[in-house]
């Protein structure tokens, strides 16, 4: 972790680091801060001639509306459910696939790899109608399965490719050794390859989670029932035909953003460590 360790307590070095960190912080957070600020503003302060980051009369009214008067809490839970399950399924399936592609040479391997990637190459506006009909024929419309299935499908290509990259980076000698010690090939995958690519799995998990968490078009097309809608679709209830309710929209967006950050921290802390310690124990 600490590869570029600072040997001499170089002041210059730290300064550079902090200037860079400050720059990155500013760029990443600025629009978000604007969002948070708007979520605490009354409508009368939303648009002012001179943009003001700190509200003059901060209010919790927008949060009260979002939490108390709308279905947003329900949408929120639906999103958590769909995103977590998508992540879990994608990870298991992608890890297996990536390992297969990384460690075995078999006929049809390269075309299969390219085909998996090709799923990403079609603009979704073109496949939405045929996909809708597939979902209809499978009787999956208006169920969360439609989302789980389609999200997993669209998350897999990247997860497979990314994890394959990580598996490729692990020296095969390690697994060879395990095989000689009497481990099965599947055992070698579980005990050696998986823990060593923990970082890649964390990255894939975050990717899958956020992909499912943020998806709008499929969710809007496949689901009509209020009780089943997810957050991104729920946000549009603040869009009228010609108007937008900015303040509650931003409050809902803040509530939408925080959990993914919490998820990230959790995954970073626990998943990576869990995988690594599992390897040691196993």
């Amino acid at each position: 972790m600490r590869k570029f360790r600072v040997r001499r307590a170089g002041v210059v070095r730290y300064c550079t680091l902090y200037v860079a960190a400050a720059l990155v912080l500013f760029v990443s957070l600025f629009p978000f801060l604007w969002m948070v600020s708007t979520s605490f503003k009354p409508p009368s302060e939303t648009f002012t001639r001179v943009p003001r980051l700190i509200p003059v009369h901060p209010t919790l009214e927008n949060y009260r509306i979002v939490l108390g008067e709308t279905m947003i809490p329900r949408y929120f839970l639906n999103s958590v459910y769909v995103a977590l399950l998508t992540t879990a399924i994608s990870l298991v399936v992608a890890a297996l696939g990536a390992y297969g592609f990384s460690r075995f040479r078999f006929p049809g391997r390269s075309p299969a790899l390219l085909m998996i990637l090709s799923v990403q190459m079609f603009p979704s506006v073109v496949i939405i109608i045929p996909l809708f009909i597939v979902m209809r024929n499978l009787h999956l419309l208006n169920t969360h399965y439609s989302l789980l299935v389609s999200y997993t499908t669209f998350t897999l290509p990247l997860c497979v490719w990314m994890l394959k990259g990580f598996f490729d980076g692990i020296p095969r000698e390690l697994e060879e050794a395990a095989l000689i010690d009497g481990c099965s090939k599947f055992g070698a995958f579980l005990r050696i390859a998986l823990p060593l690519s923990a970082q890649g799995i964390v990255a894939s998990a975050i990717f899958a989670f956020i992909g499912a968490w943020n998806e709008f078009m499929f969710a809007m097309t496949f689901i009509n029932i209020e009780e089943l809608k997810t957050m991104p679709v729920g946000l549009t209830s603040f869009f009228g035909r010609f108007t937008v309710e900015w303040n509650p929209l931003m409050a809902a967006s803040v509530l939408f953003t925080i959990p993914s950050l919490v998820f990230f921290v959790f995954v970073q802390r626990n998943l990576a460590r869990g995988l690594v310690s599992g390897a040691v124990k196993g």
């Binding site: 709008f216 078009m217 809007m220 009509n224 209020e226 549009t236 209830s237 869009f239």
Partner: peptide, 10 residues
């Protein structure tokens, strides 16, 4: 069912 204006045509 409530249909969002955003993407409603689709």
């Amino acid at each position: 069912s409530w249909i969002p204006w955003l993407g409603a045509q689709q």
